[in-house]
Design a protein around this nucleic acid. Structure first.
Lengths: 341, 341
DNA sequence: TTGTAGGCGTTATCAA
DNA sequence: TTGATAACGCCTACAA
């Protein structure tokens, strides 16, 4: 079986006995074409089932109408919400989306970056991997004046735009809430400190302790991949401590829930013995018992804003932004896991 | 700031004083070019920071090296696992991915289909929306000999390949398990029956009842969007029944968990009063108390297999498949929510 | 083993 | 308002 012959503007022009130039203009809604002619052309295109060839077009206009997205992994609630938000905008604006996962590895991230570069995406949306320690691999984009935006997992830089939440403030408020519940020995589970998100949360956490004259205990700080299993592992470590903390603030919900379940299994009462709080407001927080106190992180909105900002930048043909970073609002959500009073 | 001049094979050819044909061949690893020449060309390309222009290439070879994916919504655990699986293969094989969401609407699905068509994807991976009642909108692909594969939410057809699980069997086994727990009045929560997945589960459910001489009660069948809120709604309906069921089998985990939590809130004991079971094996099933009995649905594997099969078909340049459908294995996972004995 | 040249489908410049 | 034509960057007969 052979495929159907592809219909081009040449076919339309031939059938109508006019030039391809006019056809092209009509198809692009150029004003300089008589309404009557345009109508005929559009009808013919329709009846011939014509589809514009984006490659020929891209070749000419040097725009690909696609946006690249590089993220650590797609299958977390937060990340898939972001993607969903991004997609909701790109679809409307007529942009395609090329998505790739770094799986938290710098090599993958670099490889993905190269692929995006060869594919000549019009812009790039990136959430950095755990391992990423510098951002040299985005230089080619900057040199070509292609806008790059970091979201969530950002990087301290003046060359690209960062879209994030105020992690420090959110962590501060959350910690303060725990302190107000009379907790004195608060543990923290964190992720890769190379990443601002986690580092800032740690800073906010420490600041709240200090401001309330509480000591930061090194043995109450745990660092891991922030998944459920490692959360359970932290629980086992905590159970072995001579003195257990009376509160735990985990840098994401998955890990915190994993920890919570394991503690419960060992007979620890939440929140009476240990108050707990996570971060993200994943659906899981409303399923676990007790429901988990957390910070609402607006993933979908972040996707929407990232995509919209990037597309604006593409349209204005400049890779630089007025702002250096955009901060989204978060909200502390207090649930039973931390309510002692 | 203006962007750097783009380097092409012409530049390489000029610098080396050879023809672009040779350069092109070297870049494509053609055997008919002297090793020495090839080496020089590759080095020059490297030092010039050359990137092949995929649009010029696509224009010539009529392959885009991109795969389209149309799904209802990305932000469910199952779907993001599938995407993750797809991406893991496409990246290796050098294909880009264009993802779009139908949001369960047929208009969106059709619009997305058209976009994919204009973008001339080399192949299409589709999970149908709730509303989709026919698949005429994929005809253009078939006519152009572009392979289309339906996964999960499939459609009874001979024209395209279906990749799915044996929903009927899985539902049958699950129902049988509930019956073995001595449940006599089993309710079922289902989704859009236009979709094979849900219809087949219902059929399997009914078959198990019949084979065990249990009656199917119309008032024990609930149909909704299968999210948590609607699950809670079902719970409220059930609480109002003169005689409550003694087991509930929900067609997905989200909805079943929503229902379970609401029943618990009303004082219903799970599994003593009502045994419960879901479908998918989302992480949430291991968080809810009691842990939810479910069917393991291998989303990542399904993504991997779908992508691999599609790419093979693309490589063989034929849109037809030997097989009409591929069935993946599932596994019944029994947890406390249904263990009465 | 290498080179010449035509063409893929568009857009854009210039002229009519 | 329309038309002729030259790119855009690449691949691939065909010729050398």
């Amino acid at each position: 079986m052979t495929s159907e012959k592809e219909v081009t503007i040449n076919d339309i022009a031939a059938k109508l006995g006019i030039s391809i130039a006019t056809v092209s203009r009509a198809l692009n809604d150029d004003t300089a074409v008589r309404p009557n002619t345009k109508k005929k052309i559009l009808e013919m295109a329709e009846s011939l089932n014509y589809r514009t060839n984006n490659f020929a077009k891209s070749l000419r206009v040097k725009q690909t109408k696609t946006i690249g997205v590089i993220i650590p992994k797609i299958n977390s609630h937060f990340m898939s919400s972001v993607i969903s938000g991004i997609e909701s905008i790109t679809t409307i604006e007529g942009y395609g989306l090329i998505i790739s996962q770094s799986a938290e590895s710098i090599e993958n991230e670099i490889r993905n970056t190269k692929t995006m570069f060869s594919n000549r995406v019009d812009g790039l949306l990136v959430s950095l991997s755990y391992e990423t320690a510098n951002i040299h691999h985005f230089e080619p984009f900057r040199k070509k004046n292609t806008p790059v935006i970091f979201f969530d997992r950002t990087f301290e830089t003046n060359d690209y735009l960062n879209i994030q939440i105020d992690n420090r403030k959110a962590a501060y408020k959350l910690t303060e809430h725990l302190i107000q519940q009379n907790c004195k020995r608060i543990a923290h589970i964190t992720g890769a400190l190379k990443r601002d998100v986690y580092n800032e949360r740690l800073i906010g956490f420490k600041a709240a302790l200090k401001d309330h004259k509480l000591k930061f205990h090194e043995e109450y700080l745990f660092s891991n991949k922030l998944n459920m299993d490692e959360g359970a592992e932290v629980a086992r470590k905590i159970l072995r401590l001579k003195q257990m903390p009376d509160a735990i603030f985990g840098a994401n919900d998955d890990c915190t829930v994993g920890c919570l379940l394991e503690l419960k299994k060992a007979g620890v009462k939440i929140p009476e013995d240990i108050a707990m709080a996570g971060f993200n407001n994943d659906p899981i927080t409303k399923v676990v018992e007790p429901n988990l106190t957390t910070v609402n992180y607006p993933g979908f909105d972040m996707g929407v804003i990232s995509a919209r900002t990037l597309i604006n930048s593409i349209k204005e043909k400049k890779a630089s932004f007025q702002e250096n970073s955009i901060i989204l609002n978060t909200e502390l959500i207090i649930r039973e896991s931390s309510r002692k009073t």
